[in-house]
């Protein structure tokens, strides 16, 4: 049993400084209660990765992370035989053909590690959309029965199913089949009220009023038609920057001088400066 109720999720995530709304609390609870993987999708920097880490931290579980990228394959995701070690063994002992396909020569990768883990485990499959489409087939297989067949060793079944979180930036649509298998959580930009609370959870030294001002400014920026809207991570960075500069207020001069922390494109900066009526630095 991972969590007893959505309320318990909220409480325990808050204790590790992660603020859950109704959607987060309910889906995190259900993923544990129904034993289904949770797919968290949304733009960059809205707390998808952090959510998995927070679940692990709040429950004292071990975190195993599979970082996806273009070209990720079974050998990197699941397991691989250690060829070099096998070759050395064969050279030393020409009759060792039987032994070299044994535990000793197996390189365990994150998926296998999570399946074989005998302690409570959170498996984070991060940035699933970056992996090639074929990897989804592999994930689908693993996530449906949590077992792996290694021809030389036999079938390995999970002793206890890991709590699985997949994240995606939606740079491409994940397959229908994978989505059907998962519970779905869309993480978007929070309301200014919630973002203020998130900023204060991450940067408790920040004065409350300044956090409020930051959150409102960022909400306004997100309303503009920008190439890249500021993320929560960037709001938090902005808060840290102001603190480091010893600023307790966000007046127009400071805003103009530090806008680069949240807006990375030149054209976005000029649009924002224009719409907010800021002096151009």
């Amino acid at each position: 049993m991972w969590f007893a109720s959505p309320d318990e999720v909220r409480g325990r995530l808050a204790s590790v400084d992660y603020l859950a709304d109704d959607g987060i609390a309910t889906s995190v609870f259900l993923a544990g209660a129904l034993g289904k993987p949770l797919l968290a999708e949304g733009p960059a920097g809205v707390g998808k990765t952090q959510l998995a880490k927070a679940v692990a931290q709040a429950t004292g579980a071990r975190l195993i992370r599979l970082q996806c990228y273009e070209g990720l394959d079974e050998a990197r995701a699941l397991y691989e035989w250690n060829y070099k070690k096998q070759l050395l063994r064969i050279q030393a002992d020409g009759d060792a053909w039987e032994d070299i396909f044994s535990e000793e020569f197996l390189l365990e990768r994150p998926l296998l590690r999570a399946i074989r883990s005998d302690e409570p485990t959170v498996l984070l499959i991060d940035e699933t959309d970056k992996a090639d489409v074929e990897v989804e087939g592999l994930l689908l297989e693993i996530l449906s029965d949590f077992q792996v067949t290694i021809p030389e060793l036999g079938t390995i079944t999970a002793i206890r199913r890991p709590y699985v979180v997949l994240t995606s930036n939606a740079t491409r649509e994940l397959s229908e089949a994978l989505k059907r298998r998962c519970l779905y959580l869309h993480l978007g930009y929070p309301s200014p009220e919630r973002e203020r609370d998130i900023v204060l959870a991450q940067v408790p030294e920040l004065p409350g009023l300044l956090a409020e001002r930051l959150a409102r400014t960022v909400a306004t920026l997100r309303g503009l038609e920008l190439k890249k809207s500021p993320s929560i991570a960037e709001t938090v960075d902005w808060a840290r920057t102001l603190l480091a500069l010893g600023r307790t207020d966000l007046d127009e001069g400071v805003m103009a001088a530090t806008l680069g922390v949240v807006l990375k494109h030149d054209s976005d900066q000029s649009r924002a400066a224009k719409e907010l009526g800021l002096p151009r630095p």
């Binding site: 109720s5 959505p6 109704d22 959607g23 609390a25 309910t26 889906s27 609870f29 259900l30 209660a33 129904l34 797919l39 989505k179 059907r180 998962c182 519970l183 779905y184 959580l185």
Partner: peptide
């Protein structure tokens, strides 16, 4: 597995399972 009297929990439970 949820408390059906909590309307927002009910909404999110449906959303998590049906809206992808």
């Amino acid at each position: 597995v949820i408390d059906l009297a909590e309307r927002e929990t009910l909404r999110e439970a449906y959303a998590a399972t049906l809206v992808k």
